[in-house]
Design a protein around this nucleic acid. Structure first.
Lengths: 259, 259
DNA sequence: TTAAATAGATCAAACGTTCGATCTAATCAA
DNA sequence: TTGATTAGATCGAACGTTTGATCTATTTAA
């Protein structure tokens, strides 16, 4: 039994959310909740699966542990997602959807900030500082982005068959937006190889603090990221990154969140 | 079962080290080599296990796949290492031992370079450039360090019971040496929290190019790291990192390897 | 012979998946 | 308002396979 074959078969597992079902059953959708509300079970499975997959990896998570964590019957996984592989794919799809409200405005704000700066290095520095604070907060502090980030990092050095989807819909848009900032700061075109590389390094050096958190903690004598420690990281890293891209230093106390 | 397809045929396990057996037999040592030379089998298992664990992770690798890749019988794993977990521990231990000839002199050279610079920013810039070239080469190009780096990255965000050993014997010595350079460049004490953090970021931003190589490749239209592309990365990253730590730019053509 | 090392067989446990039975809520004919 | 019907959802119990570990027998060099 090769997984790839099953994957191909499970590839057309569509979202079975309520709206889809209601639409399929008729325009005048009246009924909502069934017995124990299948949509709720589905959501619980997705939630538990995201955390477990992110924490332990695909192989290390058994369907039984999954069912137990989501407080559903074992067969519910097969019923709702077609199997373990289908569930993983849906977790990734949902990750992209859920991170849109956080990442989308951030990328848009980045583009607006760069356009508004019109080459003014001081203003670009503000935009850069805001982005670093935003990204570090998302990676290290924001609990909503904790396991999604961990799961993405797993995809990075062990891509699943759905890594291209993640790349297309989450990585490229974010990198393109940041490349606009990096290009403006260094005076290069946003789609230069150098700009793209430095963009990857910039984003990567923020995410590595999340990926290799055990190392960071061990080096600094920490046992967890607290808001105060994240703030320390932001204040330490921001001047270094600004200097890295030839941007002027800014007043630390003026560092606000993203506009 | 894994989501990944057949990764890296696993058939390219290096031919058995004949010198090892010959030396054991001829050196007048007591009884070392028996029937088919147990030391050679042990070494083959270690080699294959390192690559497989690094590529697929501990759980995704079965003892049968290990035995097949190492061209030994299944029971040889239990005989030589006591079991799968014992094998993994030994792989980690061997990783530390094998990386010593590469990492040890690098750390020592770093200390010597920093001491020799005596605060001269231009000389510190040379040392920093040499270190970046060295580390990037080890992470991205050196085939001997390919799977060890991948395995270490796995330990970083999913520590095994032997992570403390790795931390103690490999991470801390390297970071301490680099912290000396970073401290000298930024004018801080080497054991400052800021210095330690920036040190982790510096090392991390080099390693992330190896960890998230698929992303880097996708952004730059690459499909592998070639020596030319690694050189491009070194030349692009070096000036940025020098600026990051307030060191003067250096002549790119003068960038040599580590002294 | 003696002990190291390999080969092959076998073990219980855990794996992902599948199945039919069961239950609930909406639907429809009366 | 009924009672029967249907589809959605859950459940327990298996399925066949693979896992890591273990066992005995055999082979080989000392």
């Amino acid at each position: 039994m090769t997984l790839l074959g099953d994957v191909a078969a499970a590839g057309d597992v569509v979202a079975r959310d309520e709206t889809g079902r209601a639409a399929a059953l008729g325009a005048g959708g009246k009924h909502r909740a069934r017995r124990a509300d299948g949509a709720a079970s589905r959501a619980r499975i997705l939630e538990a699966a995201g955390k477990l997959f992110a924490d332990q990896g695909y192989d290390a998570v058994s369907t039984r542990a999954l069912a137990k964590a989501a407080r559903v019957n074992l067969s519910a996984i097969g019923y709702h997602f077609g199997g373990k592989a289908g569930l993983y794919q849906e977790v990734l799809r949902q990750l992209i959807v859920d991170s849109e409200p956080i990442m989308g405005p951030a990328a848009e704000g980045l583009r607006m900030g760069v356009a508004g700066a019109r080459g003014d290095k001081a203003k670009l520095a503000e935009v850069m500082a805001g982005f670093i604070r935003h990204l570090l907060g998302a990676v290290l502090r924001d609990d909503r982005m904790r396991w999604p980030m961990a799961l993405m990092l797993r995809e990075f050095n062990q891509p699943s068959p759905w890594f291209p989807m993640l790349l297309e819909q989450r990585i490229h848009p974010l990198h393109n937006a940041v490349a606009g900032l990096v290009g403006a700061a260094t005076g290069r075109r946003p789609d230069d190889a150098e700009t793209r590389l430095l963009t990857a390094v910039l984003i990567g050096q923020c995410m590595v603090l999340g990926a290799a958190r055990r190392v960071v903690w061990a080096r600094l004598g920490w046992d967890a990221y607290t808001p105060e420690r994240v703030e320390f990281i932001v204040r330490t890293l921001t001047p270094a990154v600004l200097a890295m891209f030839g941007l002027p230093a800014i007043d630390p106390d003026a560092q606000g969140g993203k506009p």
